[in-house]
Design a protein around this nucleic acid. Structure first.
Length: 625
DNA sequence: CCCCCCCC
């Protein structure tokens, strides 16, 4: 059994244990009331994220009833790792006193290692909040020597262990680089870093850059107006909000890219559902807030943006509904779509396709951003900070939310480099669209039609869709690959010709005068082991036929029919690597497997060699057995 | 105090 670090809480009360990683016992865990939980329609997982646990920790001599677990560690309580009588090591923590009173000190647990569990309370600890102050005084002098020598050891958690500087920073205001005005506003406060802000502090000034700012907007829910901005310094980032009068005071003052001193604002827990920034907290300006431009606007230590780009091929590994930064080239911009959501809410959206060296992905823009998006930005660099990762048919798409920053052709080295690459090479590369198939190429099994026939029965029993890759030749194409489709967004239903210049859509139950032409065809693919009819839709058909459906000859004239015949026969004999999805469909009271092409790749000789060698390897194993 | 984040 671990020994508790007796006396550590007393030192903590005097702000003198920074750097220690004390061993403590959990005496009690309790769920705190959370205001944000009330009266809302959160899902269970959202609810779980806003729950906050209060712990009573003991060092055997004293206990502190006001210890708060950071939400990222809630899982430890939920899965039972952290419970009553657990012995823990505090790896990272913060002291934060309510209204500056020692009697209301709070210990924020940021990182913890569960070492053991006892069967009972160790010792007979008394509350630290009512402990003898003199005892505290005498202890202080002997211990403070160690204050700036943090002990750093390993931990079971992912975050690097950072020595914790307690909430009252020792750093003085940088007098040499500031003017009198700057000093005035912070003379009664210490200069803090964003990293050190938390809801329990009330005397602070930060020096920050405005990285982004939303326009002022009104909201109906409660009647009011607000704006918000993302502000950053050397250490972190935080969202700042201004409501009502504070909008008028601060919104015009804050200019994106400029540096300001901000003194006093309400710090509260951020709702991670809507806040993309890497910070547990956000701030709201209030009556006591003072914002002054930093007259020395050149602060090379404060970055222009805090960015952590994820390459597009890595997005498939990112948890959905998380927020990422991404940079790519806009390679196509789709038309705006007006639609109705399942909740019968009107929306406008626009999809764009972006590309980097590793792949491409669809990005969906909504409402004003979709409406105002300039189609002339095609082939420009787009940088997204805080794009939401979504799942579609097992693949990934990105969504630009109200809180996502969108920058076209940002002046960043990575942007210039990307653009140069695109113009010199990228334009000519046939990339993988992650929207269409999320699976990593290496993970898609390579099959022959002979093998497909063998495992058809097992696939049917699983009842799932599965994707495989096959090297095959187009041997026969069904005639008339183009059809007249309902032009209403997302419908695509084949129209019935009323023969009076109008067309009937069964799905919409409406007659239309216009239509759009779309590809839909069936192609017989063959390899040396077998064959299979496979459905080809818009994108894959267009790749094979080499023209958009509007240009496919489909007139009744002899000339058109001849051209169509030439088109159809031209693709026969073409050998490609096809990505095919097999799906079990229930049709006319019986199950059948439906094969759909979801991707076409040129034959890659190097890849083929790898595949053959792998198969040969497997065969040798069987033989030697 | 917002917080809409929707669609195939």
């Amino acid at each position: 059994m671990q020994k508790l670090t007796t006396g550590t809480l007393m030192r903590f009360a005097k702000n003198s244990i920074c750097g220690e990683q004390p061993i403590l016992q959990v005496l009690n865990i309790k769920l705190m009331d959370s205001k944000s939980v009330n009266g809302s329609s959160m899902t269970a997982s959202q609810y779980k994220k806003t729950q906050r646990y209060r712990l009573i920790l003991s060092d055997g001599k004293h206990f502190l009833p006001s210890c708060v677990l950071t939400v990222q560690l809630n899982e430890l309580v939920v899965n039972g790792q952290l419970q009553e009588y657990s012995i823990i090591r505090l790896d990272r923590y913060l002291r934060s006193d309510l209204k500056g009173q020692t009697a209301k000190m709070i210990l924020q647990i940021l990182q913890v290692t569960v070492l053991d569990i006892a069967t009972h309370k160790i010792g007979n600890p008394v509350s630290l909040l009512t402990a003898n102050l003199n005892e505290i005084e005498t202890l202080t002098t002997s211990i403070t020597k160690n204050v700036l020598q943090p002990k750093v050891t390993g931990s079971v958690f992912k975050q690097p262990i950072v020595p914790i500087i307690n909430d009252l920073p020792i750093v003085p205001p940088p007098l040499s680089t500031t003017t009198t005005t700057d000093v005035d506003s912070i003379k009664n406060n210490r200069l803090f870093k964003i990293e050190a802000l938390n809801p329990f502090q009330n005397k602070w000034t930060i020096r920050v850059r405005v990285a982004s700012k939303t326009p002022m907007r009104t909201y109906a829910n409660g009647e009011g107006k607000l704006f918000s901005c993302d502000i950053i310094d050397e250490t972190s980032e935080i969202r700042a909000n201004g409501f009502g009068d504070d909008c008028d005071r601060f919104e015009p003052l804050l200019i994106i890219g400029n540096i300001y001193y901000i003194t006093q604002a309400q710090i509260k827990y951020a709702n991670k559902q809507f806040n993309t920034l890497n910070n547990d907290f956000e701030m709201t300006f209030n009556n006591e807030t003072i914002i002054e431009p930093c007259l020395n606007n050149i602060q090379p230590n404060i970055p222009m943006q805090r960015l952590h780009f994820i390459s597009i091929d890595q997005i498939q590994n990112i948890e959905t509904n998380s927020f990422i930064d991404v940079i790519g080239i806009i390679i196509s911009i789709k038309d705006m779509i007006h639609g109705k959501s399942k909740q019968n809410k009107d929306y406008t959206k626009r999809d764009i396709l972006i590309l980097d060296r590793t792949g491409q992905i669809t990005v969906t823009l909504w409402y004003r951003i979709a409406e105002n998006f300039q189609t002339s930005t095609v082939r420009s660099v787009i940088m997204l900070k805080g794009a939401s990762v979504n799942d579609f048919n097992g693949g990934r798409t990105l969504s630009v939310l109200a809180c996502t920053q969108v920058h076209i052709d940002p002046d960043l080295p990575i942007a210039h480099e990307l653009r140069k690459w695109y113009l010199e090479e990228g334009m000519n590369i046939d990339m993988t669209d992650l929207t269409l198939h999320s699976h990593k190429h290496e993970n898609i099994s390579w099959k022959t039609f002979g093998q497909v026939a063998e495992y058809e029965s097992s696939m049917a029993s699983i009842g799932n869709s599965e994707i495989f890759r096959i090297k095959a030749v187009c041997t026969f194409v069904r005639h008339d690959p183009v059809y007249k489709a309902c032009s209403r967004f997302d419908c695509k239903k084949k129209l019935q010709d009323n023969n009076d210049g109008t067309y009937y859509c069964l799905k919409c139950d409406l007659n239309y005068e216009d239509f759009k032409l779309l590809y839909m065809t069936s192609i017989l693919l063959s390899d040396s082991t077998g064959y299979q009819w496979v459905s080809f839709f818009e994108k894959e058909s267009e790749i094979l036929f080499g023209c958009p459906p509007e240009q496919f000859p489909c007139g009744k004239s002899k000339d058109d029919e001849e051209k169509a015949y030439q088109k159809l026969t031209s693709i026969c004999g073409q050998e490609k690597m096809f990505l095919i999805r097999v799906k079990l469909n229930h049709y006319n009271n019986h199950d059948r497997l439906q094969f759909t092409c979801v991707g076409i790749e040129p034959i890659d000789a190097r890849l083929m060699c790898h595949l053959y060698l792998e198969d040969i390897g497997k065969m040798s194993c069987i033989l030697s057995d």
